[in-house]
Design a protein around this nucleic acid. Structure first.
Length: 316
DNA sequence: AATCATGCCAACCGCCTTCGA
DNA sequence: TTCGAAGGCGGTTGGCATGAT
């Protein structure tokens, strides 16, 4: 069935009455250029308002919801396009560890990015790698892997790309196009095993099992990520054991080490209370990171290989 | 060249919350 | 206070693009 002509009969199950609409006349599916222009022009002259009436007044044969979604996710002038940058990836991981699937809340900290985009990123990229590691994305193992392996690694990549600091002696870059990933390693061992993880002091007492407890006293089993890490939503400085690099190791055993990324986000001005204020005061400004991640993804084949090894050590 | 598998993402669905009469 | 309308949000789907076979 043509997506544009599908029945709308199921649309009103949600309690969102569209009774004032002529349902038989409503369009669905992809928006046309003409519809986009109509919506843009209408909002440019009349501003945003009540979406149902806006849709009617603009002459769009769409539901108000559909118009709102199209505007917020695609037509808004401040919507950012292009790959999620390394910094944005790091921020998404960090914020998701705090708040879980609170996509709209996470999106507030990534100006120009929509909750839908972040959600899609998470589902297509992060969950994919959880699958590759054969663990549930909500599992403690995966959370720890993400927190103590991937995120520090990502910080290293950011620092390396910025030319500010990196302890890595080898770099591997991945480019993902479509479904495949190609990898270019420079200076690393032939087996694509980079030593990003192997060069800094390690607290041998640290394990993923105690990691959650290391930052607070609330690290007992809870399903929600934020609760899991025992982090209050607001007025909480950045996850302390994660960002205070010298105090706690992040690996699963002594073969792991942490990059010297301490307080990276704070050093970038990413204090969350400040971020709250920042967002309130200046919601239109772009996030002060300018680095584009042309590699698309910070995980590559080598990373997965290494991570699988480390992950297995964690589990066993 | 054809077919299949996979990734990506725009759009929809439906529940919940907020608003306002 | 109640109730319907509208908005917000997270989950899910479907179609297109691309790569693999």
């Amino acid at each position: 069935m043509d997506v544009n002509t599908r029945s709308l009969s199921s649309n009103n199950k949600s309690g969102n009455s569209q009774s004032s609409e002529d349902e038989s006349d409503l369009r669905r599916g992809p928006w046309t250029v003409e519809e986009d222009l109509t919506l843009i022009n209408y909002i440019a002259t009349q501003g945003e308002g009540r979406w149902n009436s806006l849709a009617r007044c603009a002459g769009l044969k769409r539901t108000g919801k559909s118009c709102r979604l199209r505007w917020l996710n695609y037509l808004r002038p401040d919507v950012r396009r292009g790959n999620i940058t390394l910094e944005e990836q790091l921020l998404i991981l960090e914020l998701h560890s705090r708040w879980g699937n609170r996509w709209s809340k996470i999106a507030q900290y990534l100006p120009g990015r929509t909750d839908n985009e972040i959600k899609n990123y998470w589902r297509t990229r992060v969950q994919k790698h959880a699958k590759q590691l054969k663990c549930d994305v909500n599992s403690k193992q995966f959370q720890d892997t993400m927190r103590y392996l991937w995120m520090p690694r990502l910080v290293e990549r950011i620092q390396a790309a910025n030319g500010t600091h990196t302890t890595a002696t080898a770099t591997a870059t991945a480019s993902t196009s479509g479904g495949s990933t190609t990898t270019t390693a420079t200076g690393g061992p032939a087996m694509g095993y980079t030593d990003d993880f192997i060069h800094a002091p390690v607290n041998s007492n640290f394990t993923p099992e105690n990691s959650a407890n290391s930052s607070d006293s609330l690290g007992t089993h809870v399903s929600d990520f934020g609760e899991y890490y025992g982090i209050p939503v607001h007025n909480q400085s950045v996850n302390q054991d994660y960002f205070q690099g010298d105090q706690v190791g992040y690996g699963c055993d002594d073969s792991l080490s942490r990059p010297n990324y301490g307080n990276y986000l704070n050093n970038q001005g990413m204090d969350f209370q400040a971020a709250d204020n920042y967002m309130e005061q200046n919601s239109q400004q772009q996030w002060p990171f300018g680095l584009e991640d042309t590699m698309d993804n910070f995980w590559n084949v080598e990373d997965i290989y290494v991570l699988q090894q480390q992950f297995n050590m964690c589990v066993n």
